[in-house]
């Protein structure tokens, strides 16, 4: 348990760091973006909304830095992320609330599936070193150095168009109202397939490479040779001895790499106009919608941390050496 407690402490530290970065970064923004917004909206903003934005941007010159910081923290704790410039007058929290489920559904699910598929394939490729399986390596290397979004562009060019089963954009048929009926779910799945496929193809190759290398490394460990000496069936040696151990560094690698992967996968949403956080990030950059940018950054960080925590629990379950039994 002490292992998990330590990790929890680390996650709290990371949350604090992300929040603090978010507090300081907007101070670099030139000029007074809030004033610009107020002018644009011509007095449609409540004084409360204006105040919240001032706190967010650290523009409250009368307060000391410390008290600005604490008002900012207080505001965050109340779930107030400010007001979105682009989706005025929606609060950032609501905007993100609309996008998050789509991103979790698309990016979250495909990232996990990609990890499992890639790890399984990498185990086989690593085990069958020296056979046809090796010819997969150059292909996966090539694919894993392509940005995800570009692969999305290629997928759209090749697989969509008039008469194609795959829609080129959106998360569901225009005109449908999101609810839990079959028509809507079917449409969602149909729209999600191609972006999901894009993310899978790009992320799988990275996992294949890393798992392959771990398999090759582990295969010459003594206990694998011992397993062969014991006369165990090939499958058993490969799965319970080699792959089972090679999996461990791959799981911790998964946790560590999430922060990198999520960035790439989010942008697949842009090319497919998929209404998740990635698309919102794109719109926020274009419109200089700082509150939305910051909110998205915070939420993505929190989600990655949560995923990390889950990976930690998985690691704990997989590696008896991290468990402290009294």
């Amino acid at each position: 348990m002490s292992y998990l407690l330590k990790r929890l402490g680390f996650y709290l530290l990371t949350v604090w760091a992300a929040v603090t970065i978010n507090f300081f970064v907007p101070r670099m923004i030139p000029g007074d973006p809030v004033q610009a917004l107020i002018t644009k909206q011509r007095g449609q903003m409540t004084s409360e909304a204006v105040r919240s934005l001032y706190v967010l941007f650290g523009l409250d010159k009368d307060e000391s830095l410390a008290s600005q910081y604490f008002s900012y923290l207080g505001q965050l704790l109340r779930g107030d992320l400010g007001m979105s410039f682009t989706f005025f007058p929606s609060p950032v929290a609501d905007v993100i609330g609309d996008g998050l489920p789509w991103t979790v559904g698309l990016v979250g699910i495909t990232t996990v599936i990609g990890f499992f598929l890639g790890t399984a394939a990498g185990a086989v490729v690593g085990w069958r070193r020296g056979t046809w399986a090796d010819s997969l390596i150059p292909v996966t290397t090539f694919v894993s150095s392509i940005p995800y979004f570009w692969l999305g562009l290629v997928a759209i060019a090749l697989l969509t168009g008039p008469g194609s089963f795959f829609p080129a954009s959106g998360a569901y048929e225009i005109g449908l109202v999101p609810n839990w009926d079959w028509q809507f779910i079917g449409s969602t799945v149909q729209h999600g397939l191609l972006p999901a496929f894009t993310i899978l193809v790009s992320s799988v190759s990275g996992w294949i490479l890393s798992m392959r290398n771990m398999m090759v490394t582990v295969s010459s460990d003594d206990y694998v040779t011992v397993a062969h000496a014991k006369g165990l069936p090939e499958r058993r040696v490969m799965l319970a001895y080699a792959a089972r151990n090679a999996l461990l560094p791959n799981v911790s690698g998964f946790a560590l790499a999430l922060g990198f992967i999520v960035g790439g996968t989010l942008l697949v949403e842009i090319v497919f106009s998929y209404p998740g956080l990635g698309l919102q990030l794109f719109q926020a950059v274009g419109a200089k919608d700082y509150p939305l940018l910051q909110g998205i950054f915070l939420i993505i960080t929190l989600s990655v941390l949560l995923a990390n925590l889950l990976a930690d629990v998985a690691y704990l379950a997989l590696d008896p050496r991290t468990r402290r039994e009294a």
Binding site: D222, A229, A240, N245, L248, P320
Partner: peptide, 25 residues
């Protein structure tokens, strides 16, 4: 050979620390 291994000829390897699979009972 696989069938014969261990049932006829068993081996205790150099360095038992590494001979046991660390993640299994």
């Amino acid at each position: 050979l696989r069938r014969l291994r261990w049932s006829e000829i068993a081996i205790v390897f150099q360095g038992a620390i590494n001979s046991l699979n660390p993640v299994q009972r």
